[in-house]
Design a protein around this nucleic acid. Structure first.
Lengths: 191, 191
DNA sequence: CGATTCTTTGAAAACAGTCAATCTGTGTGG
DNA sequence: CCACACAGATTGACTGTTTTCAAAGAATCG
């Protein structure tokens, strides 16, 4: 699990062998089976976590009991609840494994220590947050400006790999459309 | 204009008199009349900008020519296109004054210089980005999970001051509903 | 005041959601 | 290996919501 992370982080930032040792010494590895939770609503998120294998999904449950998917996290991406982690507040989100998954995690404290010791990490982290912010803005724009069909098309464009790995009703939930509507949209397009 | 910024930043972070001098020496002040642009689609965003008085609005124009409001920025808040600023890429957004406004701006270069000189600034900036990210996520969640009426109610809750300062059709555009729908929602609620 | 911008209203049409039933594929246990 | 259960996907009919279009009324800016 750590091996995948090492490969990933070396590709993303200038990282020395010593840095890698620091990462490794503080990392916690975790394996999840399908449908196991990394985080459940009400818990405080304790870890920055990197998905080295598998597939995670973040969702929230609304008052009427419906699930709404906020994020898909395939291997080689990060998944956490930054708000809960930063402020030590109970999370409103659930993070669950969609496939058997392998995670590499760090506590906030350890990661702060890494920030001090690994100069390039702060820059990388900053960039990551910014990218997150752009993507969020883009998603907001799509949500307020597009029809269901346009949302679906953009999803396919932006995350081409995802559609084949998750049930369609979760894609529908991610897009904010009912599963039936998504089904009909897709059927029209096949023609 | 700078006076408002000084007051604001002192309240937000531990800032010394020397820090203030640094801020001031690099700041550019700008006054905008109603409907004047801070940034237009296609331009590269060059400044971090603080709204010390007035009211700014960020919007994007979709293919069919419709405006979609991404952000409202009243006095004592920041407004920029972070993506364009960071990557020197042409912006897809327009930022325009809704009221006569006064701005305090810094180039990216100068602000990086400030980051080096003012240790607490990085933390403050980090927090700001994070808060932005939470708010964006919240807005995404609302967009995919709520009815038009719920969206409006949440807007009123979250930004109580805004509704009285902007035309309703811009609120509608922010929420992703037609102005007619918003009008009807509001009318029902008055009962 | 005059022009422009903004808001409201009504009626029709388009769109998306709900409900219920059916179909499909997958994997499990007998 | 088959039968069955289960999760997921699709379909049709219906309902409800939202958009669109058009017109008129209200408010605001210069």
């Amino acid at each position: 699990m750590f091996a995948e992370f090492e490969k990933f982080i070396r590709a993303q930032a200038e990282i020395t062998d010593e840095d890698i040792k620091l990462f490794r010494d503080t990392a916690i590895e975790k394996t999840l089976r399908r449908k196991e939770f990394l985080l459940q609503e009400g818990e405080v998120c304790r870890y920055k976590t990197f998905v080295s294998k598998g597939f995670m999904r973040t969702y929230r449950i609304s008052n009427d009991g419906t699930e709404h998917v906020l994020q898909f996290s395939p291997e080689n991406s990060w998944t956490t609840d930054p708000e809960s982690l930063e402020n030590n507040t109970p999370s409103s989100n659930n993070i669950v494994a969609l496939e058997p998954s392998e995670l590499v995690m760090w506590t906030k404290k350890d990661f702060n220590y890494l920030f001090e010791k690994i100069p390039n990490l702060k820059d990388y982290s900053q960039k990551l947050v910014y990218r997150n912010l752009y993507l969020s803005r883009q998603r907001i724009y799509t949500a307020i400006s597009s029809t269901a069909e346009e949302k679906y098309d953009e999803f396919i464009q932006m995350y081409p790999g995802i559609i084949s790995r998750v049930p369609l009703h979760m894609v529908a939930s991610f897009l904010g459309v009912s599963r039936e509507t998504l089904s009909r949209i897709r059927h029209v397009q096949v023609k």
